[in-house]
Nucleic acid binder design. Structure first.
Length: 111
DNA sequence: GGATTGACGTGTC
DNA sequence: AGACACGCCAATC
């Protein structure tokens, strides 16, 4: 019995180090479903809606843009949380995104 | 129950 | 290199 796709996503997101961020596609790719990044987004939707203990604010799109801020309790909380962790946000986008990027593939193994 | 949408990304032109 | 097309599949209408 393997973990469900959603569960894996939750697991990875929970494992994102503080002050680090990752992208939906990176998670999807880590799970072997590179083209199913949207599913990660759906999982995150559940995460914020049903399972708010998931730090979904550390997950952004490939451009480092805070696309999911609107789904938070307050659309400013996402930016606030990220800035609180030492990440700078400019125009709803992460500054120096690459430096804060955390690749699950190089840190996690489900095998 | 078919059609549309969506926290995205890759591939192609 | 920028723009467009497609895939993914769950949830919603």
């Amino acid at each position: 019995m393997e973990l469900d796709f959603y569960d894996k996503v939750y697991d990875i997101v929970c494992l994102i180090p503080k002050g680090k961020v990752t992208s939906y596609g990176a998670i999807a790719k880590a799970l072997g479903v590179t083209r199913s990044a949207r599913m990660v987004g759906k999982a995150m939707n559940n995460a914020t809606t049903i399972t708010p203990n998931i730090p979904a604010h550390r997950v952004v799109n490939r451009n480092g843009l805070l696309t999911g801020k609107m789904h938070f309790k307050t659309h400013t909380q996402m930016q606030e949380l990220l800035e609180k962790e030492g990440i700078t946000i400019k125009n709803d986008k992460i500054v120096n995104f690459k430096a804060h990027f955390w690749d699950p593939l190089t840190n996690i193994s489900f095998d």
